[in-house]
Amino acid sequence: MAAQPDIAAAPADGLAQAQSDARARRRRWLLLAPALLTIGLFGLFPLVITLIYSFLSPGTYGGVTWEFSTNAYTQFLFERDIFDDTLAFSTTYLNIFGRSIGLALVATIGALIIGFPTAYFIASKPPEQRNIWLFLITLPFWTNLLIRTYAVLLIIRDEGIINVSLMQIGLIDRPFGMLYTDGAVFMGLIYSYLPFMVLPLYASLEKLDFRLVEAAYDLYATRFQVLRRIIIPAARPGIIAGCILVFIPGLGAYITPELLGGGKKLMIGNLIALQFGSSRNWPFGSAAALILMVVVMAALLIYVRNAGKAGVRHG
């Protein structure tokens, strides 16, 4: 007799279980919905428009006309010769992409070299002091990027603080031209994106068990060996995350090359902007934006796959 309520209860339990499962699922979707909607509406939908536009023909005064065309993509690699109208391979746009990728890479490496010791320094401080250091790292974000970049410009220009002080000391007698060079853009990029490098590096290094470092020293490891075999493997996820976070915005940077580079050489971001402005070629602008995205995704995939393998080997 005592078993009967159990038998009756079992299906009821199952039903209740299924109901609460369904409710949990529904709740999960409901909670996800704002994020999915935002990404769909403001991420995927514009991307689809960009894709469609890249296969249309440019309108005379901007916009597009609804005629299918792959010109935007052929234009990227080939150029109709101004002289005899033959299609010839052209490196103009590849050069622009190459320059942008090169600068973003160099800036990433620079940020890593500066950011790594910084993050290590913070991670090796007592926990109660770390927050102050982290706060100082994030402090620049309180001001708009445009204003910070402008401040850099004021410091390094011919009549800026550095040149004026150097001339007053008598070290130089003419201003030393720092502004409007690739070096200025490189410096501006490192400055803008350094916190993106330091923060993930710190997150990794913070978890490092410093007893491992001590143990390595006890086993007669040199300082370089400790760095290479203990610290860098532990920081690897942070290095990867930091490099990605600096490289990608660096590649698409618009303000920094425009202000500090003097606008003489196009970067990818400026090239794309130009197509929607005075060049009046929206399809080409769309195509260039998509090509940039594909390049970044491919680089990321290769990077993540290699990093994954390396991680397994070390694990």
């Binding site: 150029e79 101004i82 103009t92 050069n95 003489k264 050489k265 196009l266 090239l271 009046r280 070629n281």
Partner: peptide, 13 residues
């Protein structure tokens, strides 16, 4: 305008 655009891109490329 198309010719100008190409000159301009080459100049700034």
């Amino acid at each position: 305008v198309d010719l100008y655009n190409r000159i301009w891109t080459r100049l700034k490329g």
